[in-house]
Amino acid sequence: MAALLEVKGLKTQFFTQDGVVHAVNGISYKLHEGETLAIVGESGSGKSVGVMSLIRLIPQPPGKIVAGEVWFDGRDLMALTDDEVRQVRGNRIAMIFQDPMTSLNPVLTIGQQIMEALQLHLGMDKSQARQRAIELLEMVGIPGAASRLDSYPHQYSGGMRQRVMIAMGLSCNPQLLIADEPTTALDVTIQAQIVDLVQGLKEQIGMAIIWITHDLGVVAGLAERVIVMYAGHIVEEAEVHELYEEPHHPYTLGLLRSVPRLDMGKSKRLIPIDGLPPDLIDLPPGCPFAPRCQYRTEKCTQEAPPIDATSPTRRVACWNWENVVADIKEGGIYV
């Protein structure tokens, strides 16, 4: 199957007063049509900058995409004109963000905002757009959609606003939906509603999804494949079942171990990952995770491990991943 999206050696930096922030450091991955890919990693690991770079939404300056190709449906987005990229963004790739309030215009009604996009991108007339807007709101589960069309964003709850963002994202039947932590600001019960909604819509519409999150729990219920990022690098990529059964990277293992699980007996003590993430202006030589890593050997602090395939479906960037696997085979993940 041909890839819908192929990212090759993407590198994005910010040129600030304090120095060059190495936000995304040469990442490569593929996404197939209709596939859901999750990107996980902690704050500052380059998740948002990584996907914003794909659609060239990096503030420039201070940001700059310094290297890389982004092949989407047969074209390199990095080689297109600004106008052409804008076309792709409006029609083929939709994006939803963490905070729906900042992406909605407070002085326009919800209906006006959805209809505007439909009229602009799909050339509908007003009554067609209104009809379609009602359908979209119904599709994302807004009760009494026709009567809520004339409400303003502040009259909607946080969960409803995120539904509106999804409705707007879907209005042009995109091939790819990029969701940047769309449920992080919401309560768990509302998060469950949104995840269910997106799963349902995906089956209905068949778009590919990139879902960014720091929550390994959400990923488990949502994604087919997972990319784990650390300090602007992809450190591990795997099919979702494989990743949770047998993480290969010490960082992934550390993340799984440091959160208590609701379905397991109460653990005596959590196992934290010691230390702090590195400063992206002054990255250590070698593997960026080495200073916090239990599996560190001398080589790790000298030479950065390349991301290599360990099976047809998996990649990992670690010199000692086989030791990680051996430990898990012997003692399990949750010790």
Binding site: A220, G221, R261
Partner: peptide, 27 residues
């Protein structure tokens, strides 16, 4: 019960089989 059923669990096999109690509407 609804709150507990909404908490995601980092295990895809469990998540596939889980029955959620989805609460309607907002607080």
């Amino acid at each position: 019960q609804a709150l507990l059923s909404a908490v995601p669990i980092p295990d895809p096999y469990i998540e596939e089989k889980r029955q959620r109690i989805v609460l309607e509407g907002d607080v």
